[in-house]
Simulated scan of single mutants.
Amino acid sequence: MRIAETVTFGGSALNRAAELRGDSAGMAARMVDPVAGFLPIWRGKPLFDGPEQDGLAWLPPGHSVVAGAEAVFLGLEGDAPRFACDISDWEPAEIPDTLGAFLDPSQQRHPDLPGQEVFAELRAAMTRLTPRDAELAATAKAITGWHESHGFCARCGQPTDIAMSGWQRDCPACGTHHFPRTDPVVIMLITQGNKVLMGRSPHWPEGMYSLLAGFVEPGETIEAAVRREVMEEAGVHVGEVGYLASQPWPFPSSLMFGCRGEALSEKITVDPVEIADAIWVSREEMMDVFAGNSQRLKPAREGAIAHFLIWNWLADRLD
Protein backbone atom coordinates (compact mmCIF):
# COMPACT_ATOMS: atom_id res chain seq x y z
CA MET A 1 0.00 0.00 0.00
CA ARG A 2 1.63 3.23 -1.16
CA ILE A 3 -0.03 5.26 1.58
CA ALA A 4 0.63 2.70 4.32
CA GLU A 5 2.43 5.07 6.66
CA THR A 6 -0.37 7.63 6.70
CA VAL A 7 -2.24 5.46 9.23
CA THR A 8 -2.78 7.11 12.62
CA PHE A 9 0.33 6.93 14.86
CA GLY A 10 2.55 6.18 11.85
CA GLY A 11 4.73 8.06 9.43
CA SER A 12 5.97 11.10 11.37
CA ALA A 13 9.65 10.04 11.20
CA LEU A 14 10.34 11.00 14.82
CA ASN A 15 14.06 11.10 15.59
CA ARG A 16 14.15 8.76 18.59
CA ALA A 17 17.90 9.37 19.00
CA ALA A 18 18.43 5.98 20.60
CA GLU A 19 22.20 6.56 20.58
CA LEU A 20 21.71 9.20 23.31
CA ARG A 21 19.84 6.98 25.78
CA GLY A 22 22.93 5.57 27.47
CA ASP A 23 24.60 8.95 28.02
CA SER A 24 23.47 9.71 31.58
CA ALA A 25 25.34 13.00 31.89
CA GLY A 26 24.20 14.22 28.51
CA MET A 27 20.59 13.24 29.24
CA ALA A 28 20.68 15.09 32.56
CA ALA A 29 21.75 18.22 30.68
CA ARG A 30 18.96 17.78 28.13
CA MET A 31 16.37 17.51 30.88
CA VAL A 32 17.13 21.05 32.03
CA ASP A 33 17.53 22.49 28.54
CA PRO A 34 15.08 25.42 28.21
CA VAL A 35 13.80 24.02 24.89
CA ALA A 36 13.00 20.61 26.40
CA GLY A 37 9.36 19.57 26.75
CA PHE A 38 7.75 17.16 29.21
CA LEU A 39 4.45 15.38 28.47
CA PRO A 40 2.64 14.25 31.64
CA ILE A 41 0.67 11.01 31.44
CA TRP A 42 -2.00 10.42 34.07
CA ARG A 43 -3.32 6.85 34.25
CA GLY A 44 -2.79 6.40 30.54
CA LYS A 45 -4.16 9.82 29.54
CA PRO A 46 -1.82 12.37 27.91
CA LEU A 47 -2.06 16.06 28.70
CA PHE A 48 -3.72 17.94 25.84
CA ASP A 49 -3.54 21.64 25.13
CA GLY A 50 -7.16 22.70 25.30
CA PRO A 51 -10.62 21.13 25.49
CA GLU A 52 -10.61 20.20 21.78
CA GLN A 53 -7.61 17.87 22.38
CA ASP A 54 -6.05 18.73 19.04
CA GLY A 55 -2.51 19.14 20.36
CA LEU A 56 -0.28 17.92 23.17
CA ALA A 57 0.65 20.14 26.11
CA TRP A 58 4.40 20.21 26.69
CA LEU A 59 5.56 21.48 30.07
CA PRO A 60 8.94 23.18 30.61
CA PRO A 61 11.76 21.70 32.73
CA GLY A 62 11.12 22.01 36.46
CA HIS A 63 7.34 22.47 36.18
CA SER A 64 5.64 21.44 39.41
CA VAL A 65 3.40 18.89 37.66
CA VAL A 66 6.36 16.78 36.53
CA ALA A 67 8.87 17.67 39.26
CA GLY A 68 10.25 14.50 40.85
CA ALA A 69 8.67 12.16 38.27
CA GLU A 70 10.80 9.70 36.31
CA ALA A 71 11.26 11.00 32.77
CA VAL A 72 11.43 8.77 29.69
CA PHE A 73 13.28 10.21 26.71
CA LEU A 74 11.04 10.05 23.63
CA GLY A 75 13.39 11.66 21.11
CA LEU A 76 14.25 14.95 19.47
CA GLU A 77 12.12 17.44 17.59
CA GLY A 78 14.86 19.37 15.88
CA ASP A 79 17.11 20.25 18.82
CA ALA A 80 14.31 20.07 21.39
CA PRO A 81 14.34 16.97 23.64
CA ARG A 82 10.97 15.41 24.35
CA PHE A 83 10.20 13.44 27.52
CA ALA A 84 7.21 11.64 29.04
CA CYS A 85 6.44 11.51 32.77
CA ASP A 86 3.93 9.26 34.50
CA ILE A 87 2.16 11.26 37.23
CA SER A 88 -0.50 8.66 38.03
CA ASP A 89 0.06 9.12 41.77
CA TRP A 90 -1.74 12.47 41.54
CA GLU A 91 -5.30 12.21 42.90
CA PRO A 92 -7.85 14.57 41.36
CA ALA A 93 -10.83 15.76 43.36
CA GLU A 94 -13.09 13.24 41.61
CA ILE A 95 -12.36 9.87 40.03
CA PRO A 96 -15.00 9.13 37.36
CA ASP A 97 -16.72 5.76 37.10
CA THR A 98 -15.69 5.66 33.44
CA LEU A 99 -11.95 5.63 34.20
CA GLY A 100 -10.44 2.57 32.54
CA ALA A 101 -13.47 1.98 30.30
CA PHE A 102 -13.10 1.20 26.59
CA LEU A 103 -13.63 4.89 25.86
CA ASP A 104 -13.49 7.19 28.88
CA PRO A 105 -15.13 10.55 28.01
CA SER A 106 -14.04 12.26 31.24
CA GLN A 107 -11.34 14.93 31.44
CA GLN A 108 -9.15 15.87 34.38
CA ARG A 109 -7.62 19.24 35.20
CA HIS A 110 -4.56 19.61 37.42
CA PRO A 111 -4.66 22.47 39.94
CA ASP A 112 -1.16 23.55 38.90
CA LEU A 113 -2.36 24.00 35.31
CA PRO A 114 -4.86 26.88 35.40
CA GLY A 115 -5.09 27.18 31.61
CA GLN A 116 -6.87 25.00 29.07
CA GLU A 117 -4.78 21.86 29.59
CA VAL A 118 -6.70 18.63 30.25
CA PHE A 119 -5.91 14.95 30.65
CA ALA A 120 -8.06 13.02 28.18
CA GLU A 121 -8.41 9.65 26.49
CA LEU A 122 -6.03 9.27 23.53
CA ARG A 123 -8.39 6.92 21.69
CA ALA A 124 -10.93 9.75 21.33
CA ALA A 125 -8.42 12.43 20.31
CA MET A 126 -6.02 10.51 18.05
CA THR A 127 -7.48 11.65 14.72
CA ARG A 128 -7.23 15.34 15.67
CA LEU A 129 -3.48 15.24 16.33
CA THR A 130 -0.71 15.94 13.86
CA PRO A 131 1.26 12.83 12.83
CA ARG A 132 4.15 13.93 15.06
CA ASP A 133 1.99 14.54 18.13
CA ALA A 134 0.20 11.23 17.50
CA GLU A 135 3.49 9.29 17.40
CA LEU A 136 4.79 11.04 20.50
CA ALA A 137 1.55 10.43 22.39
CA ALA A 138 1.42 6.76 21.39
CA THR A 139 5.06 6.26 22.39
CA ALA A 140 4.57 8.04 25.71
CA LYS A 141 1.43 6.10 26.59
CA ALA A 142 2.93 2.73 25.67
CA ILE A 143 6.29 3.19 27.41
CA THR A 144 4.84 4.61 30.63
CA GLY A 145 2.28 1.80 30.66
CA TRP A 146 5.10 -0.74 30.34
CA HIS A 147 6.94 0.75 33.31
CA GLU A 148 3.76 0.76 35.38
CA SER A 149 3.19 -2.99 34.83
CA HIS A 150 6.81 -4.21 34.80
CA GLY A 151 8.31 -2.92 38.02
CA PHE A 152 9.52 -6.36 39.14
CA CYS A 153 11.97 -8.81 37.61
CA ALA A 154 10.30 -11.64 35.71
CA ARG A 155 13.24 -13.91 36.56
CA CYS A 156 13.66 -13.43 40.33
CA GLY A 157 10.75 -11.20 41.40
CA GLN A 158 12.84 -8.37 42.83
CA PRO A 159 12.14 -4.66 42.12
CA THR A 160 13.88 -3.33 39.01
CA ASP A 161 15.47 0.04 38.24
CA ILE A 162 14.87 2.29 35.23
CA ALA A 163 17.88 2.52 32.90
CA MET A 164 18.79 3.78 29.43
CA SER A 165 16.67 6.94 29.73
CA GLY A 166 13.57 4.86 30.34
CA TRP A 167 14.05 2.25 27.62
CA GLN A 168 15.28 -0.52 29.89
CA ARG A 169 14.76 -1.88 33.39
CA ASP A 170 17.62 -3.59 35.22
CA CYS A 171 17.38 -6.02 38.10
CA PRO A 172 20.02 -5.25 40.74
CA ALA A 173 19.49 -8.67 42.32
CA CYS A 174 20.12 -11.04 39.40
CA GLY A 175 21.45 -8.67 36.72
CA THR A 176 18.69 -9.34 34.19
CA HIS A 177 17.90 -6.57 31.67
CA HIS A 178 14.26 -6.05 30.70
CA PHE A 179 13.09 -4.21 27.58
CA PRO A 180 9.75 -2.64 26.55
CA ARG A 181 7.18 -5.14 25.40
CA THR A 182 5.31 -4.88 22.10
CA ASP A 183 2.65 -7.48 21.28
CA PRO A 184 2.25 -8.37 17.57
CA VAL A 185 -1.36 -8.52 16.36
CA VAL A 186 -2.68 -9.38 12.91
CA ILE A 187 -5.76 -7.59 11.61
CA MET A 188 -7.05 -8.76 8.27
CA LEU A 189 -9.10 -7.56 5.35
CA ILE A 190 -10.52 -10.91 4.24
CA THR A 191 -12.38 -10.67 0.96
CA GLN A 192 -14.14 -12.90 -1.48
CA GLY A 193 -15.13 -11.19 -4.68
CA ASN A 194 -17.00 -8.03 -3.80
CA LYS A 195 -17.41 -8.78 -0.09
CA VAL A 196 -15.37 -8.27 3.07
CA LEU A 197 -15.54 -10.35 6.25
CA MET A 198 -16.53 -8.41 9.37
CA GLY A 199 -16.91 -9.45 13.00
CA ARG A 200 -17.94 -8.01 16.35
CA SER A 201 -17.03 -8.54 19.97
CA PRO A 202 -19.86 -8.98 22.48
CA HIS A 203 -19.01 -5.82 24.46
CA TRP A 204 -19.05 -3.49 21.46
CA PRO A 205 -21.89 -0.99 20.83
CA GLU A 206 -24.83 -2.40 18.92
CA GLY A 207 -24.17 -2.48 15.18
CA MET A 208 -20.41 -1.97 15.47
CA TYR A 209 -18.41 -4.39 13.31
CA SER A 210 -14.73 -4.41 12.41
CA LEU A 211 -12.11 -6.56 10.74
CA LEU A 212 -11.10 -9.78 12.46
CA ALA A 213 -7.89 -9.60 14.50
CA GLY A 214 -5.80 -11.64 16.89
CA PHE A 215 -2.42 -12.01 18.55
CA VAL A 216 0.48 -13.70 16.77
CA GLU A 217 1.60 -16.77 18.70
CA PRO A 218 5.21 -17.76 19.45
CA GLY A 219 6.80 -19.59 16.54
CA GLU A 220 4.15 -18.36 14.09
CA THR A 221 4.47 -16.28 10.93
CA ILE A 222 2.18 -13.35 10.23
CA GLU A 223 0.59 -15.25 7.33
CA ALA A 224 -0.06 -18.31 9.50
CA ALA A 225 -1.57 -16.13 12.21
CA VAL A 226 -4.00 -14.59 9.72
CA ARG A 227 -5.19 -18.00 8.53
CA ARG A 228 -5.44 -19.42 12.06
CA GLU A 229 -7.32 -16.47 13.55
CA VAL A 230 -9.89 -16.32 10.74
CA MET A 231 -10.48 -20.06 11.00
CA GLU A 232 -10.78 -19.92 14.80
CA GLU A 233 -13.14 -16.97 14.87
CA ALA A 234 -15.27 -17.43 11.76
CA GLY A 235 -14.54 -20.92 10.43
CA VAL A 236 -13.43 -19.48 7.07
CA HIS A 237 -10.45 -20.97 5.22
CA VAL A 238 -8.02 -18.36 3.85
CA GLY A 239 -5.63 -18.87 0.95
CA GLU A 240 -3.23 -16.17 -0.25
CA VAL A 241 -2.20 -13.63 2.41
CA GLY A 242 -0.31 -10.36 1.90
CA TYR A 243 0.95 -7.54 4.10
CA LEU A 244 -0.52 -4.03 3.70
CA ALA A 245 0.38 -1.67 6.56
CA SER A 246 1.20 -1.55 10.26
CA GLN A 247 0.06 0.62 13.15
CA PRO A 248 1.41 1.07 16.68
CA TRP A 249 -1.60 0.66 18.96
CA PRO A 250 -0.86 1.73 22.55
CA PHE A 251 -3.96 0.15 24.11
CA PRO A 252 -1.91 -1.01 25.84
CA SER A 253 1.11 -2.07 23.75
CA SER A 254 0.33 -3.71 20.41
CA LEU A 255 1.75 -3.45 16.92
CA MET A 256 -1.02 -4.12 14.42
CA PHE A 257 -0.01 -5.88 11.19
CA GLY A 258 -2.65 -5.05 8.60
CA CYS A 259 -3.00 -7.85 6.05
CA ARG A 260 -5.26 -8.87 3.21
CA GLY A 261 -6.39 -12.41 2.55
CA GLU A 262 -8.48 -14.29 0.00
CA ALA A 263 -11.25 -16.43 1.47
CA LEU A 264 -11.58 -19.90 -0.05
CA SER A 265 -15.22 -20.25 1.03
CA GLU A 266 -18.15 -18.13 2.16
CA LYS A 267 -19.54 -20.36 4.88
CA ILE A 268 -19.20 -18.81 8.33
CA THR A 269 -19.11 -20.84 11.54
CA VAL A 270 -18.69 -18.46 14.46
CA ASP A 271 -16.88 -19.56 17.60
CA PRO A 272 -18.91 -17.77 20.32
CA VAL A 273 -15.94 -17.92 22.67
CA GLU A 274 -13.92 -15.82 20.19
CA ILE A 275 -16.49 -13.35 18.79
CA ALA A 276 -20.21 -12.59 18.96
CA ASP A 277 -20.91 -12.54 15.22
CA ALA A 278 -19.33 -12.50 11.75
CA ILE A 279 -20.89 -11.44 8.46
CA TRP A 280 -20.00 -10.77 4.84
CA VAL A 281 -20.57 -7.16 3.78
CA SER A 282 -20.69 -6.10 0.14
CA ARG A 283 -18.72 -3.15 -1.16
CA GLU A 284 -21.95 -1.30 -1.89
CA GLU A 285 -23.29 -1.77 1.64
CA MET A 286 -19.93 -0.79 3.14
CA MET A 287 -20.02 2.44 1.16
CA ASP A 288 -23.41 3.16 2.75
CA VAL A 289 -21.94 2.35 6.17
CA PHE A 290 -19.12 4.85 5.73
CA ALA A 291 -21.56 7.44 4.41
CA GLY A 292 -23.65 7.05 7.55
CA ASN A 293 -26.64 5.68 5.62
CA SER A 294 -26.74 2.14 7.01
CA GLN A 295 -29.41 1.16 9.51
CA ARG A 296 -27.65 -2.13 10.22
CA LEU A 297 -23.95 -1.37 10.73
CA LYS A 298 -21.65 1.25 12.19
CA PRO A 299 -18.19 1.85 10.65
CA ALA A 300 -14.98 0.82 12.37
CA ARG A 301 -13.62 3.58 14.62
CA GLU A 302 -11.86 6.35 12.70
CA GLY A 303 -8.14 6.33 13.42
CA ALA A 304 -7.97 2.56 13.87
CA ILE A 305 -6.19 0.55 11.18
CA ALA A 306 -9.42 -1.35 10.47
CA HIS A 307 -11.06 1.90 9.32
CA PHE A 308 -7.94 2.75 7.32
CA LEU A 309 -7.85 -0.61 5.49
CA ILE A 310 -11.57 -0.71 4.71
CA TRP A 311 -11.56 2.88 3.48
CA ASN A 312 -8.69 2.21 1.11
CA TRP A 313 -10.30 -1.03 -0.08
CA LEU A 314 -13.40 0.97 -0.99
CA ALA A 315 -11.20 3.52 -2.78
CA ASP A 316 -9.29 0.79 -4.68
CA ARG A 317 -6.00 1.98 -3.17
CA LEU A 318 -4.72 -1.39 -1.96
CA ASP A 319 -1.55 -2.49 -3.76
Rank of each mutant, 00 (worst) to 15 (best):
R2S: 13
T6S: 15
T8C: 15
F9I: 07
G10R: 09
L14S: 02
A18E: 15
G22N: 04
G26L: 09
V32R: 06
A36D: 06
L39G: 15
K45G: 11
L47M: 08
F48L: 07
G50D: 14
Q53R: 15
L56M: 01
L59W: 04
P60L: 05
A67Q: 02
A69H: 08
E70A: 13
A71G: 10
G75L: 10
G75C: 07
P81R: 04
F83K: 00
A84R: 01
D86R: 03
I87N: 07
S88G: 09
S88R: 00
S88L: 05
I95S: 10
L99P: 01
R109G: 11
P111F: 02
P114M: 01
A120P: 00
A120H: 09
E121A: 06
A125F: 04
T127E: 10
T130W: 00
R132T: 15
E135H: 01
L136T: 11
A140H: 06
W146L: 03
H147Y: 02
C153K: 04
C153Q: 03
C156W: 00
P159I: 04
D161T: 10
Q168T: 07
R169W: 03
C174F: 06
T176S: 09
P180T: 02
I187M: 13
I187G: 13
Q192N: 14
R200W: 12
R200D: 07
S201R: 11
P202I: 12
W204Y: 14
F215M: 15
P218H: 13
E233F: 08
V236P: 04
G239Q: 02
G242M: 11
A245C: 04
A245F: 00
S246N: 08
Q247D: 13
W249P: 01
L255E: 14
C259S: 04
R260F: 12
S265T: 11
S265E: 15
K267I: 11
P272F: 06
I275V: 14
I275G: 07
S282T: 08
M287H: 05
F290S: 14
Q295C: 09
E302F: 01
A315C: 08
L318E: 10
L318Y: 05
D319W: 03
